[in-house]
Design a protein around this nucleic acid. Structure first.
Length: 436
RNA sequence: GGAGGGGUUCCCGAGUGGCCAAAGGGAUCAGACUGUAAAUCUGACGCGCAAGCUUCGGUGGUUCAAAUCCACCCCCCUCCA
């Protein structure tokens, strides 16, 4: 389990920390120059934890996950930790209220769903620095309370814990409190670091900048329990220039699971990135070099036309997450819907759209009123909203604006006797099949 | 267990008997302008074509009339024990 003395992959010109810094991806460093030297000395073991808070990771988790990959590419050994234990407790860091606990069944189900997602970006078969996937439940579930309190708890001063910025505002916030359960989260995560240090000689932990308190907690604990110096680095939490929340749209969170967010929707999400954010996102979410990205930015600025960055970002990230197939499906749909004349699509094209993951539903000739169909396809939340959309000239069928609320999707109007491409607003499409 | 403060429409938050489907802000959506961008402007934002209906932690009650008053209950916060 000793770290090998091998030097990191010589293909990386810069050291990993400088590389991350040039991408503006380093918020805080615990150890600073010492950490840089530590990483330069050889292949190190780096970990990042991901708690199961849903059945899929979302794009917010991609920054640390891809950072792990960057470390691996620089010759270090990444450990992706899935928080089977910590997920049962709930991280209070910078959360303004106590969260309700999910059942243990649900959490273990989520853990299983997260594993392949965590694995897909890392290389598990590349010799010395092959990635590792671990679950912190493995070393906590059989730890009895008394031993834990004596062996681990004793190293924590509550005085220090309540000073952590991550829980301070929660403690001070009027009308909110924090349970002992959530308060203990820091101890569990700290223990993870110490345990990984012991088991795998892990010496570096990375995480979002909200994890700073938990990471430094782990550094302290590792020193106290194992007398080892370990390090930490935090990555930026992704924010948008306009202040709205990153990674959410009307239809909700952008997930990595293609069943929850189709590759098409995923691609479209990135394509819609604001100019003010797009170069930053290229640095966070792609493996293009900082120089390449700066070059793209310079070109976009010079051209004075529509920037190319969003397209590059959408292609890069979609391919990374959904593979070549997912990307080409997403591009096919996008081109058919946004650049072509919808009414000229062939029956095969339309079938392909359905296969590629364009949202699709079936209607019968008895319930084919436009209002009804908009609601059925969830393009409108209610009849009232559907009517409003129609009134606003926001709805079209097969490329034709619908102005009449009594418009019916009849067979004569269908493409190839059964298809309708519904559009609400500028970007939302839905394929409808008429069954006679 | 005691004392006090709270629970309002997605979020924050006003409202303390009729003028309340409920101020204001945020988020979101649509339209215009654009580049499937931002900013800006306009509009929408419980349900219903409408008449109207259902909402303000829950259940009952008082009243011509309740988010607002009363009773009980549930949940949250603070301090004390």
């Amino acid at each position: 389990m000793n770290s090998s003395g091998k030097s990191p992959d010589s293909s990386s010109e810069k050291d990993i920390i400088s590389d991350l810094q040039s991408r503006n991806m380093v918020v805080q460093l615990a150890g600073g120059d010492e950490l840089t030297a530590h990483l330069a000395e050889g292949s190190r073991v780096v970990y990042c934890g991901f708690d199961p808070t849903a059945s899929s990771l979302h794009i917010g988790s991609m920054v640390p996950l891809l950072a792990l990959k960057r470390f691996q590419m620089a010759g270090h050994k990444p450990i992706a930790l899935v928080g089977g234990a910590t997920g049962m407790i709930g991280d209070p860091s910078f959360k303004d209220s106590e969260r309700k606990l999910n059942s243990t069944d649900i959490i273990s189900d989520w853990v299983e769903q997260l594993k392949p997602q965590l694995s897909q970006f890392l290389d598990f078969d590349c010799g010395e620095n092959s990635a590792l996937l671990v679950n912190n439940l493995d070393w906590t579930q059989d730890y009895d309370v008394l031993s834990f309190l004596r062996d681990v708890g004793k190293h924590f001063a509550v005085n220090a814990m309540i000073q952590k910025e991550s829980v301070k505002q929660r403690l001070e916030r009027e009308g909110e409190g924090i349970s002992f359960t959530e308060f203990s989260y820091m101890i569990l995560q700290s223990y993870d670091f110490a345990e990984l240090n012991k088991r795998y000689d892990c010496t570096v932990q990375i995480g979002g900048s909200d994890q700073w308190g938990n990471i430094t907690g782990g550094i302290d604990l590792t020193r106290r329990m194992h007398q080892n110096q370990v390090f930490g680095a935090t990555l930026p939490l992704v924010t948008k220039a306009d202040g709205s929340k990153f990674g959410k749209t009307e239809s909700g969170t952008i997930w990595l699971d293609p069943k929850k967010t189709s590759p098409y929707a995923f691609y479209q999400f990135w394509l819609g990135t604001a100019d003010a954010d797009v170069y930053k996102f290229l640095k966070f979410f792609t493996f293009l070099s900082a120089e390449q990205i700066d070059e793209i930015e310079a070109q976009d600025k010079a051209s004075g036309m529509k920037p190319q960055a969003q397209g590059i970002l959408a292609r890069e990230v979609t391919e990374l997450v959904h593979g070549e197939q997912g990307l080409s499906a997403a591009v096919r749909i996008s081109e058919a819907l946004f650049s072509g004349d919808i009414s000229s699509l062939t029956a095969e094209d339309l079938q392909q759209l359905e296969q590629d993951g364009l949202p699709c539903s079936t209607i019968s000739s008895e319930s084919n009123g436009i209002v009804e169909v908009l609601v059925a396809t969830e393009l409108a939340k209610s009849n009232k909203m559907a009517r409003e959309f129609i009134g606003n000239n926001a709805v079209s069928v097969n490329g034709q604006l619908v102005a009449d609320q009594d418009f019916a999707l009849t067979q004569e109007k269908a493409l190839h006797t059964q298809y309708f491409v519904l559009k609400r607003g500028k970007k939302l499409f839905h394929l409808v099949k008429l069954v006679v």
